[in-house]
């Protein structure tokens, strides 16, 4: 057991979809997708839909709860290049505060919902989201907005 090799962590409301499964997985050089999400860990259909991409890309995929991710990710082998995907800033913060060694946190799709205001083209946040992201940054994580790999990274402090 050493430190897990987390090549990228992304916040995306859709978790694994076309953009994440194909574009980000290859640009990050990942060979294992770890979906850390409490609902998906218990949802067979969602798992099937997300596993479809992973199977054709030849990468592994796991569906773990946040708690299991915190307790178990350190068992990863050094050859596993992990792309960690969470749905929202709350879950990202739980992982960081649980001691998961996240270095880079990519803010991807955060869709509009009631009470959220637009921060960038594809990200909408409320005060709690901002507080959770700041908490991650304060813990030493490099937090930035980047929709697709070709986009420039926008550091958190520039957008909120």
């Amino acid at each position: 057991m050493g430190e897990p090799n987390i090549v990228l962590t992304r916040i995306d409301n859709r978790l694994v979809h076309g953009q994440v499964g194909v574009v980000w997985t290859s640009s990050a050089g990942a060979n294992l997708l770890l979906v850390a999400n409490d609902e998906t860990a218990n949802d067979q259909l969602q798992q099937e839909l997300m596993a479809a991409t992973a199977e054709t890309s030849g990468v592994g995929i796991r569906f773990w709860t946040i708690d299991k991710t915190v307790s178990t990710i350190s068992k990863a082998s050094a050859r596993q290049k992990i792309f960690l995907i969470v749905r929202n800033p709350q879950d990202a913060r739980r992982l960081v505060e649980g001691g998961v060694p996240i270095k880079d946190l990519n803010i991807g799709n955060m869709h509009f919902s009631q009470g959220k205001t637009q921060v960038t083209k594809y990200t909408y946040m409320d005060d709690q989201d901002k507080a959770d992201l700041k908490a991650c940054a304060d813990a030493g994580v490099n937090v930035y907005v980047q929709e697709v790999p070709e986009d420039k990274k926008q550091p958190l402090e520039e957008v909120i």
Partner: peptide, 17 residues
């Protein structure tokens, strides 16, 4: 659908269910 695992694919499968 254009892409296996993409959002159009996922939403189509959900409706088929």
């Amino acid at each position: 659908c254009d892409l296996l695992g993409g959002t159009p694919f996922k939403e189509a499968v959900k409706l088929s269910n």
